[in-house]
Design a protein around this nucleic acid. Structure first.
Length: 891
RNA sequence: GGGCGAUUAACUCAGGGGUAGAGUGUCUCGGUGACAUCGAGGAAGCCAUUGGUUCAAAUCCAAUAUCGCCCACCA
């Protein structure tokens, strides 16, 4: 076994952390990411989705922030004044839970023991100590947001905006207080919104209960998955059209255990197909039942305490029991009474709280609501009329679907951490809403004619209420600030689809209401990052990929490039480590190219004018460079990040490194200085532009190479984006000479590989009659051909019928003497294989050309294209056939 | 139940009316003055199925199948 030298050789690239530290420190020193309010440049505003202050960078953040950073850096290089507004969200429930756990560890039994004020002090303390974690992680990722403007949703300014909005919406009857069924979290003891409820399919049972009909010995049987709600039943409903029960309508049943007389009512809600067709109605604990109860004027009976235990409205034996214990007792009691008819297995959806992961109970309480329906109209309209566009457009359907069916938004939370609701109550229950206590005191005084005691509502607002104001509250609203005028509305919002309803829709509703304009022109909705098998990442599955670990392992830029290259529209991202390794290699490749430039003294000459370039190879690469730059540019602008990354990748690796540098390499080492000057200049120029194009995606390495290693000029992040229009570069469609050379070299290499001619044995290429232009090309690239194709000589040889292999490039034919070293049969095989491919191609085209309909109806250009294609292939095939015949004769 | 999306090489995915593309993997050769985290060259596909539109369909339309997601659903 030969020793693998690769293992001995340690690549001497500087460490990722050194590169990352260098780049971020010069960006910080030069404040490249700060928006310039006084700049005359046109603005681009990106509102960062504020991560939870309790958060730690996960792969979704990494994707989201990388894409925003690509956009931000790109537009800066395009000469725009970019505001990327960062900040964090106070995350009411998450933060409160976290700090509650913390004080528990400190030996405090509950937040109640501390009291509201002291508990909040603890939360602020925590925020001061640990709240910056996520921000530092974002900075490490390279997020070039304007951190000097960092905001927090509980900042004084943002809180003022919250109060202003609340009061204003209240005055306009868009916020109201109401007693309604809400989703109640019995663990957190707070109401939550519909969106915070997650339905999970669970195994359960249908219990069939017999309710005795008063005055008879008969029963009506009802089915339920929640036996304990029996205690709160106020009627039994049957469908008026259901013949089975028609005679029972209006009769009464004796509700077992509680012995309450309740009516059998007729209601369309009862579905004869479901269960027994008769349904028990518990208005206080079921959303549908609530409506039924209302229709029949039945007072709901609440059977629960806020912590989910049974309350005073239930029989003594049940009071204080948890729901599950009460359920078991009901079943046992019913069975004992002989009223349990049967039990069936079922799988049904059970609501869970997204934060507490506990079963959510419909619960009747007084809460504050936003009349979302009224606010939704204009938001829907702004998408319909194109003021705001979703990318990809398919998300607009999702948006409409939800907005059209929107329900009142419950905004009050029975928590301590958050924006306190600016409402006060008089002892008689009168509500006063105002921004400050003084304000409501004045209101109260004018009502009562004297000073009275006012108590502020103890509840706080849903966190999304304040983040819904983010696009304008961060810019100084309600003050008419310069920022607001310049940076509102934003241009682009980058977000995951999971918060379209939570956040995007609410920002649009509130933004349009208060600012008269939708808060952003475009919403780019990116995919979810999944594991390599396509599973959603979750802590319980243990398949969570920690971006910070990946960043340590591969470097931040590698992760950024990987996420960008994988960010296709409309499909989830499966993060496979293979891909990451591939892109790590790409960054290494760039470093090696850089090393090559250094070794060969390729230094950027400020006097160098690319319009004066003469050599075809240089013209070729410049041409491709600008094509790539234009391409990357339009792909970023249309949010096709994967295309942008791939396009740059391909150009750098396969055009610049594989061909340009290889072709130029032998010439660079020649002594002719004048001759080399143009090549060296071009090489340095193109490389500097490569770094520019890649900068938005991999800022750390490109900045490092640009300003530290090569000292190409100022900081890269301040450079202009290459643009063929602005720089008036004429792009040509074809560069025949270089393209022909590449084809020629590829043919030679392919032949070598197929015939097993080792690279070290140089070959002699003969030609008989070829066009002079090809000879010229060969002569001007002779060094390249020698060094990268292993060609020793070219010579005229009229007698080309020796044992020779054939190379056909366009309409030129070459032959290589095999000198008996090579098995003719192998060459014959190779040629025959090529030929049969060509013949297949011809027959496909022939089939078309012989089709009368094709000739009659296809556009002329297409027909001509097919014909000339066929001509080309045919001439190649003919010459190949000739060569085969000749070789055949030798055998 | 309502809606959306996916199905293309072994894998992960682009593309999108005119002969099928990339990266990874795989096979062969290679220790060469940028790079073995590399270079050169191969092999590998009835583009899910069935119908339609079209001169022409992987691409457009419709149905089907399978998988995924969102919303609704605790009789």
């Amino acid at each position: 076994m030969p020793i693998k030298k690769a293992e001995e050789k340690v690549y001497n690239k500087v460490s990722n952390s050194e590169i990352e530290n260098y780049s971020s420190s010069i960006w910080d020193n030069n404040k490249i990411s700060e928006a310039k309010i006084d700049s005359v440049k046109k603005s681009i505003t990106i509102m960062m989705p504020p991560p939870n202050v309790t958060g730690s960078l996960h792969i979704g953040h990494a994707l989201n922030m990388t894409l925003q950073d690509v956009i931000a850096r790109y537009w800066r290089m395009k000469g725009k004044d970019v505001l990327w507004q960062p900040g964090t969200d106070h995350a009411g429930i998450a933060t409160q839970m976290l700090v509650e756990r913390k004080i528990l560890r400190e030996g405090i039994t509950s937040r109640a023991e501390l009291g509201r004020d002291d508990f909040l002090k603890k939360v602020w303390e925590w925020k001061k100590e640990s709240g910056g974690t996520i921000v530092n992680q974002l900075k490490r990722l390279g997020a070039s947001a304007d951190w000097s403007r960092e905001r927090f949703t509980l900042d004084e300014g943002l809180s003022e905006a919250v109060r202003e909005v609340f009061v204003s919406l209240y005055k306009n009857n868009l916020i109201y207080r109401d007693k309604r069924l809400v989703n109640w979290d019995t663990k957190l003891e707070t109401a939550i919104s519909d969106l915070e409820v997650i339905q999970k399919d669970k195994k359960g049972y249908y219990w069939y209960f017999k309710y005795p009909i008063l005055g008879t010995k008969k029963y009506i049987i009802v089915a339920t998955t929640r036996p304990e709600t029996l205690l709160g039943d106020t009627c039994v409903a049957v469908n008026p059209k259901d013949k089975r029960y028609k005679s029972l309508i209006g009769k009464k049943v004796l509700l077992p255990i509680v012995n309450r007389e309740i009516l059998i009512v007729a209601d369309e809600y009862a579905d004869p197909e479901k269960g027994t067709g008769a349904v028990k109605i518990t208005p206080a604990h079921d959303f549908n039942d609530f409506q039924v109860g209302k229709r029949h004027n039945l007072e709901p009976i609440n059977i629960l305490n806020t912590n989910g235990t049974l309350n005073k409205n239930t029989p003594k034996a049940y009071q204080g029991l948890t729901i599950l214990k009460a359920r078991a007792k009901i079943i046992a009691d019913m069975e004992e009474l002989g009223l349990l008819d049967k039990i069936e297995d079922t799988i049904h959806a059970v609501p869970y709280g997204d934060r507490s992961d506990t079963v959510i109970e419909p619960f009747l309480t007084d809460q504050w609501f936003v009349d979302a329906k009224k606010l939704a109209g204009p938001a829907i309209e702004s998408v319909k009329n194109g003021e705001t566009k979703f990318v990809p457009k398919t998300w607009e359907n999702t948006f409409f679907e939800w907005m059209n069916n929107i329900e009142p938004w419950c905004i009050s939370r029975q928590l301590w951490w958050g924006h306190r609701i600016p409402a006060w109550y008089a002892t008689d229950g009168t509500i006063f809403v105002g921004k400050t206590l003084e304000e409501v005191q004045i209101q109260a005084f004018s009502k009562y004619g004297k000073e009275i005691e006012l108590k502020q509502d103890p509840d706080v607002l849903d966190t999304w209420f304040s983040s819904g104001l983010w696009p304008f509250s961060t810019l100084g609203w309600p003050n008419k600030s310069k920022d607001l005028i310049k940076y509102y509305p934003g241009n682009i919002l980058v977000t995951g689809f999971d918060i379209i309803f939570f956040w995007v829709a609410r920002m649009m509703m509130l933004g349009i209401y208060f600012m008269k304009k939708s808060p952003f022109k475009e919403v780019y909705v990116h995919a979810l990052v999944r594991d390599s098998k396509g599973n959603k990442m979750s802590k319980s599955k243990g398949n969570v990929v920690n971006p910070l670990v990946l960043m340590d392992q591969y470097g931040t830029d590698t992760i950024r490039f990987s996420l960008t290259a994988l960010a296709t529209q409309g499909r989830d991202i499966k993060l496979a480590e293979d891909r990451i390794v591939g892109y790590r290699n790409f960054i290494t490749k760039i470093h090696n190219a850089s090393k090559f430039l250094e070794m060969n003294g390729c230094v950027l000459d400020k006097e160098f004018d690319i319009k004066m370039i003469q050599k075809p190879i240089n013209l070729w690469i410049i041409n491709l460079l600008y094509k790539t730059a234009d391409n990357v540019s339009s792909e970023i602008e249309s949010y096709r990040f994967n295309e942008a990354a791939n396009s740059a990748y391909h150009f750098v690796w396969h055009n610049f490194c594989d061909w340009y540098l290889e072709i130029v390499k032998p010439v660079l080492s020649e002594i002719n200085i004048e001759e080399n000057k143009e090549i060296k200049n071009t090489t340095a120029f193109v490389f500097s532009k490569i770094l520019t194009i890649l900068h938005p995606i991999i800022p750390f390495n490109t900045e490092y190479l640009y300003s530290k290693v090569h000292n190409f000029g100022e900081m890269l992040s301040l450079m202009d984006w290459p643009d063929s229009n602005i720089e008036k570069i004429k792009l040509s469609k074809n560069n025949t000479e270089i393209e022909w050379t590449i084809k020629f070299i590829s043919e030679i290499r392919s032949l070598r590989a197929m015939l097993n001619i080792p690279f070290k044995s140089l070959i002699n290429i003969n030609y008989n009659s070829i066009d002079k232009k090809y000879l010229n090309i060969i002569n001007s690239n002779i060094e390249t051909l020698k060094s990268i194709a292993g060609v020793e000589s070219f010579s005229f040889n009229a007698n080309d019928s020796d044992n020779s292999a054939q190379i056909l490039v366009d309409d030129a034919t070459f032959n290589i003497s095999l000198k008996g070293v090579i098995d003719i049969n192998i060459e014959l095989d190779r040629l025959n294989k090529d030929l049969s491919k060509l013949k297949d191609d011809i027959s496909i085209i022939d089939a078309k050309l012989l089709n009368k309909n094709f000739i009659e109806r296809a556009p002329k250009e297409v027909i001509e294209e097919q014909k000339s294609k066929k001509e080309g292939i045919k001439s190649l095939a003919d010459r190949l056939q000739l060569a085969i015949n000749r070789l055949d004769n030798k055998i």
